[in-house]
Design a protein around this nucleic acid. Structure first.
Lengths: 211, 211, 211, 211
DNA sequence: TATGAATGAGTTTTCATTCAT
DNA sequence: GATGAATGAAAACTCATTCAT
C-alpha cells in the first residue's frame, strides 16, 4: 500500500512526535526513573508516572511509545555513560592499583549522583536478561566486566595484586558488594560516598585480618 | 502485594484440610518459590504456579488463603532457619575469626541448598519492607545483622580484626557480596560452593594487595 | 464513526483558509483515500494519514473538521461522479444492450482510474448505512440502482434480454460481481480493464454453457 | 517488559481453561460471530460481546486468549467445513456441469445457514491477508479456488462449458457474485436461498441475452 | 481436593480531537 | 499552515480472588 513515501514516516523513529532529546522527555524520564527505582518497574503504573508529572496517563504516549521504552531509554543512557566513564578511568590510570581505586571510587560517585538508574539496573537487570529487547543490558554488562577484568589481570601479572586471586570471582565480589550499596546508601545522609569508598577500599586492599 | 482485605483469610489459615505442613502444601510452596525466584514475585501469576503444579489456579486457594500467604510462608521458613543456623554457628565458634569463617561458609551452603528462598529474599526484601504484613522480614534481618555485628565487634576488640574497620559498613559489604552470588551461582555448575567460600574468605582475610 | 458532536464542525466547514477545493486538501484526500482503502477506515488512524503527508496529526484539522469529513468528502465526490456518468451512458445508448455494455465497461474503467474510492465504497458502505451522516451513500446507491434496473427492464421489455430474468436479482449479481473486482484487480498489472470487461460481458451475454 | 510467560504456559495451549470444544465456548463464539458480522470486527468491542453474553468483558478471557482468537476460531471452523463440503460435492458430481451446479447451490445454502461466518469472511478477509496469524485464510481460499478451477477446466475440456472462458476470471466472477449476496440476502425473507440459486444459475448457464 | 465459570478492579495502550504558540 | 503538548474517553487485556458443583 502507498509504498515508500519514506521521509516523513521514517523521521519519527522512537518517541512519537517529541525529539529523542526533548526537554520534556528528559524530565519525564527522571520522574519515571525515580519511581521505577523506588517501587520497582512492574509495581509502578504508567498512571503513577503521569500523576507525578501532572498529566494524564494517555499523554505519556505522546512522548514514549510504551512503558518499556522508558525503561529502555533510562538503562541505555545509564549503561552507556557508565561504560564510557569506566573506560576512561582504566585508560588514564597509571597502575592497576590506581585503576581499581578509580573504578571503585567512581562507582560510589555514580551511585551518589544517579541512584535511581543504578537501583533500576541492580533490581531489574536479572529479569531483563531474558528478553531480546533488553539484550543491550547484558551486552554492556559484559563490556563493563571486561574493563574490570583487564585491570585485575594486569594487577596480578604486575605483582600488585595477590597471585592466587581468581579474577572473575574477585570482580563479582567487588561488583556485587559495591553496587548493592545503592539499596541502603542515602545520598543526603551523613555517610559521604567518598568515605564509603575509603572504607570499601580499605577492606579490599588489606582484608579484615590484622597483620 | 499485601492488597488483601485480610480478615477472612487469616481466620481460615490453619483450618480446612490443608494443615500448615501438609505434603501437597510443601510441594506447592517449592514450585512457587522457584517461580517467584526466577521471574519475580509480581511477575509470577497464580496461574503460572497452578499450571506448573498441574491444577487450576482457583484450586490453589484451597491450600493458601492468598498469593501473599505463599510468599510469607516461604520467607518465614527461610528467615527462621537462617537465624537459627547463624546463632548456633556464632555461639559454637571458638574465636571471632572462626565465627566469621563459619558464617560465610554456611551462607554459601544455604545459597547452594535453597537458592530460591535466598533469591526471593534478595530480590523482594527491599519492596517488602514497606508493608506491615512483611515487617517480620525486616525484624529477622536486624537479628541476623546483630549476630554478624557481634562477631565483628568481638574480633576488633580481641585484636583479630583490624581496628579501623567500621563494623556496620564491613558487615554490609560482606552480606551484599555474599548473598548476591545467588544471582549467578549455579548449584549444579563446576564451581563448588565450598570453593567459592574459600575464594571469598581469602579476599576477606587478606585483601587484594600482595604484601 | 460519526461520533462527533457535529454542530461546530459543520459550521466551520468552508471557512478558514482551506477552501473546499484547495490543492492541499485534494492532495490530503488522495492520501486518505488510499489508506482508507488499503487498511480500512477504522484501521487507518489520523496519524497514519498525517505521517504519510509529512505533517503532524493535529495539523490535519486545519484542513478537515474531522476524520469523518474526509470519508464523507471522498465518498460524496465518488458517488456524485458515478451517478452522473452512469446516467449519461444510459441516456446516450441506443439500445438496452448497448446501455448495459456501456455501464459494465465504464464500471471497470472507474475501478481502474479510482480504485481507492471504489474499494472504500465496497468495503465500508455496509457499515455506513446505519449513520444518518452517511445516508447520502444509500441514497445515491438507490439512484444508481434505478439506472441499471431501467436498462434491464427496458431490455426485457424489448426482447433483448431473456424474459425470465428477475431484474433486481440480475442487477445485484452484476453489481456485486463487477465491483468486487476492485479487491483483486491490479491497475498496473497485465490484465487490462478493457479485457476484463470483455470477459465479464461474454459471460453475461451468453452464460457458461456451450450451445 | 517482554510479556512472555513461557514454560508452563506452553502446556496450556489455546483457550485458557476451557476445552477447545466446550459448550460455553461455542455459545460465545456464536454471539461473537453475529456481532463481528453485523458491525465489523474492529467496530465490535469485547465488551459488546460480553454484554450480549451476560458476563463481564474480562470473563471472556477465561474462554479465549484474545479477541483475535475468537475471529481465528470462527474463520477456521468455517473455512474447514467449507472446503470439506466443496470437495465432497466436486468428487461426487457426475459431470462438470452438475459439479458447478452443486457448488453454487451449496454456497447459497451455506450463506443461508451460517450467514455470520460468511459475512465475516467476506468483509474481513481482505485486511486479514497481511498478518501471518491469519495466513490460514488465504491458504484455505486457495484450496477452495482449486476445487472450482478444476471443475471449470474439466467442463471446458469436456465441451460442457464454452471454450473461450478464462477459468480464473470466470471463477472470480461467480465467487464474488455469489458470496456477496450475504450482504443483502435475508435468511428469514421471502426470497428462498434455493430460488436465489436458481436465478443465479440461470444467468450463469445461459447469460442475459435472449437467443 | 479439584473444576470451571465468573468477578471486579486495575493495567497498558489507542486515538480523535483541541489549542496555545 | 503547522507544531507540540495535552485531553478524555474508550479499548483490549490481566489477574487475584470467589464460589457453586
Amino acid at each position: 500500500m502507498a509504498t515508500t513515501k519514506g521521509g516523513a514516516a521514517t523521521a519519527r523513529k522512537k518517541g512519537a512526535g517529541a525529539g529523542a532529546g526533548s526537554a520534556r522527555r528528559t524530565q519525564l524520564l527522571a520522574i519515571a526513573a525515580e519511581m521505577f527505582a523506588s517501587r520497582g518497574y512492574t509495581q509502578t503504573t504508567v498512571r503513577d508516572i503521569a500523576d507525578e508529572a501532572g498529566i494524564l496517563s494517555g499523554s505519556l504516549y505522546h512522548h514514549f511509545a510504551s512503558k518499556d521504552e522508558m525503561l529502555t531509554e533510562i538503562l541505555q543512557d545509564f549503561m552507556g555513560s557508565l561504560l564510557r566513564q569506566f573506560r576512561t578511568i582504566a585508560e588514564e590510570a597509571g597502575t592497576p592499583r590506581a585503576a581499581l581505586d578509580g573504578l571503585v571510587r567512581s562507582s560510589f560517585e555514580i551511585i551518589h549522583r544517579t541512584p535511581h538508574a543504578v537501583a533500576l539496573y541492580q533490581n531489574e537487570a536479572n529479569f531483563l536478561g531474558s528478553t531480546p529487547e533488553f539484550s543491550f543490558v547484558t551486552k554492556a554488562s559484559r563490556q563493563v566486566e571486561k574493563v574490570w577484568l583487564d585491570v585485575l589481570r594486569a594487577g596480578i601479572a604486575s605483582g600488585d595484586f595477590r597471585p592466587e586471586l581468581e579474577p572473575t570471582t574477585t570482580y563479582r565480589f567487588i561488583r556485587d558488594g559495591v553496587w548493592s550499596t545503592v539499596r541502603w546508601y542515602d545520598p543526603s545522609g551523613r555517610l559521604q560516598h567518598g568515605t564509603l569508598a575509603d572504607q570499601y577500599l580499605a577492606i579490599l586492599d588489606g582484608g579484615l585480618l590484622a597483620s
